[in-house]
Nucleic acid binder design. Structure first.
Lengths: 209, 209
DNA sequence: CACAGCCTACCAAGCATTTGCTTGGTATGG
DNA sequence: CCATACCAAGCAAATGCTTGGTAGGCTGTG
């Protein structure tokens, strides 16, 4: 029923412009109000059209968020993979991973926010299984970096790697809730400040045995 | 959720009032699925009653979450105030504040989760204005502690206090997403690990000029 | 160069379901 | 006999999505 009314040629071609515009509008609203809490009428209003007209461009509300998230995840993990495969030492890799993450918040805030806020809910649908995979993959990236750091003596030997991973992940990604491009700090500054605290702590005299 | 088998707290525990039971059920669901995404029928099903019957106990869905959050916030800030007013040095106060927070996650997980996930949305309603107040108050607690630390020379002088506050707040409270009572770590262990990283970093050799 | 045909983007109207909540009635223990 | 706790039925609004139609630009052909 759906394929009949939707011109097949318009899927990959068509007006990429309008389609991309609508996706950007939807992403912003999903990030602001949450996926479930954003109605197709909200999106249509923001785009200046009627809700029914959205279905000329997309199959469903789900397919919109699907396209938004999958595209973003693809790009992000390409960067992580590059860092993992690089020749940098563990400390530099960690720094780069943190920077890349804050950069993603800067450049793809809505996508990060949607992933943070709605992934748990979306993952219950088969269609979004890849989100769980990506999550596991992300964990693997960080844990690998941390273990490499411990092994090479760059990081403390008594570190609980899993727990540390969670702390880093939480701090970095939840920053999407308060970080605003053009605000008091650049994303690079925020990343540097966090790396400094993460590596050396906030204590004035950090004499570690 | 098989409402037929054993509705949550269906067997009246006698001592606890039915009202409190229903609030606990609602809190768990709000935390799991989000406030807006939880229907009154969800709550009623979990309680083994019909949705309309909830309105014998509560005015509205909003008043349920209101009662859940306000009660919790009251208790939490009493603890913060006690720490602020104590004679401990800045470092000890910070440690205590972190511990109290993880303790809240342990003992009032649903309440913390609701506050984390839905406060932004709820705060747009006049009724929940106190949530914004409490948020500002919390910020004040942490910033005061950090500034005291810098002033007394316990913490690094070049610390960006506001940024540090955000990092701490994010890491501590978002832990509610993964921390599970009875899991691999106690809340005290998690708090200690975090305090250690926060103060001294994860680096093996902290060279702080 | 006119014009039929087609395509993109949208409108207008509405349908089925879900949702928060209401109203009037009922069973049961004290 | 009365308060507590609940049921039965349903309403109005909101929500995701469908259907049939239209305006305007572009294209190829005679």
């Amino acid at each position: 029923m759906s394929a009949a009314s939707t011109p097949e040629g318009g899927v990959s071609t068509g007006s990429t412009t309008r389609r991309a515009e609508l996706l950007a509008i939807a992403a912003r609203l999903f990030a602001e109000k949450g996926f479930k809490n954003t109605t197709v009428r909200d999106i249509a209003d923001a785009a200046g059209i009627l809700s029914g007209s959205l279905y000329h461009h997309f199959d469903s509300k789900e397919s919109m968020v699907d396209e938004i998230l999958s595209t973003f995840q693809e790009a992000l993990f390409a960067q992580y993979d590059e860092i993992l495969a690089s020749d940098d030492d563990a400390r530099t890799k960690l720094e780069r991973a943190v920077r890349v993450s804050f950069e993603a918040i800067e450049q793809h805030g809505p996508e990060v926010a949607i992933f943070q806020n709605d992934a748990d809910h979306l993952v219950t649908f088969e269609r979004f299984g890849y989100l769980a995979d990506r999550n596991a993959q992300s964990r693997q990236v960080w844990v690998t970096l941390l273990e490499e750091g411990v092994r090479t003596g760059v990081l403390r030997a008594d570190l609980d790697v899993t727990l540390t991973y969670r702390f880093i992940r939480d701090t970095v990604w939840v920053a999407v809730r308060w970080y605003r491009p053009g605000g008091r700090h650049t994303h690079t500054e925020v990343a540097d400040q966090y790396v400094r605290i993460l590596l050396d702590g906030i204590s004035a005299s950090s004499v570690v045995e």
